[in-house]
């Protein structure tokens, strides 16, 4: 596994994803580098391709063409040039993902949700996995709910569990797809607070969100995606205070009231 770029964690090159035999161009040539420590916030109109972009990064969506080089390995290739077979689960373990609808496992307790993958994929003993899970739960104030089932938690609590479940795998990057969109307004804050703390701890994050406050405050890079293309990219200051393209200006005028 040779490192090809010093700081780039994920290099996306000319990424395209078509649906319905090319009728829908969800991604139409995305090129971007995600560096270690980045908190990249992805914004854009509905249907613009934000989710598809995020889901491509861990190959939940298989790209039509282009490359995704994660820690030096092109994960879009089933076989590397030297004939080695791609171990996709191995790479996915280093890419945590948080979904809009939580996707906790309803038949397992909070603790079991968190220990399942570390035990099954990393060979951790139950005691080791539980110790780590409990420490993470403590970090988000949910240690006392370890033995509850997901259905017994509020939306905000579920999403906090989903975040630490992903963290239990000790990923190198965390992907968030509208993590607060399914929450009641009063629960948005508690989830954003966890994400902010995570960003402060140095975690590399890619966050799709409509929370412009979070984007401004926590993001160090903003990506504006529309119609499958990166229309504009910059610092929060550049994007929010000095938008260049008419499409971004139009978008901001609608979301920043």
């Amino acid at each position: 596994m040779e490192k090809q770029d010093n700081e780039s964690l994920i290099s996306v090159r000319e990424l395209k994803k078509y649906f319905n035999d090319g009728e829908i161009k969800a991604l139409d040539g995305i090129t971007v580098d995600i560096n270690k420590g980045d908190v990249m916030v992805v914004i854009g109109p509905s249907g613009g391709g934000k989710s598809t972009f995020l889901r491509s990064l861990n190959l939940l969506e298989v790209p039509t063409s282009g490359q995704i080089i994660f820690e030096g390995v092109d994960i879009t290739k089933k076989k590397s040039d030297d004939g080695k077979k791609l171990d996709l689960p191995l790479h996915r373990r280093k890419i945590g993902m948080v979904f809009q609808h939580f996707n906790l496992f309803p038949h397992k307790t909070i603790l079991q949700n968190m220990t399942l993958a570390p035990m099954k994929t990393k060979g951790l003993s139950q005691a080791e996995a539980e110790e780590k899970a409990l420490a993470l739960l403590e970090r988000v104030g949910l240690k006392d709910r370890a033995d509850a089932y997901p259905s017994q938690l509020s939306g905000g609590q579920k999403q906090r569990v989903a975040i630490v479940r992903a963290l239990a795998m000790e990923p190198d990057v965390m992907l968030f797809d509208e993590p607060t969109s399914a929450l009641d307004p009063e629960m948005v804050g508690e989830v954003l607070a966890v994400m902010k703390e995570l960003a402060k701890s140095g975690m590399t994050m890619v966050v799709v969100t409509h929370e412009m406050g979070f984007a401004k405050e926590v993001g160090n890079r903003i990506l504006f995606i529309s119609e499958g293309k990166i229309v504009e990219e910059g610092t929060p200051d550049q994007i929010f205070n000095d938008p260049q393209s008419p499409r971004l200006q139009d978008f901001l005028s609608k979301v920043l009231i």
Binding site: N58, P89, L90, R92, M97, L104, F105
Partner: peptide
């Protein structure tokens, strides 16, 4: 729900 498989796969399960 398909999200269950996606969550499991994203955690690195086969």
């Amino acid at each position: 729900d398909a999200g269950q498989t996606e969550a499991a796969r994203s955690l690195g399960l086969s």
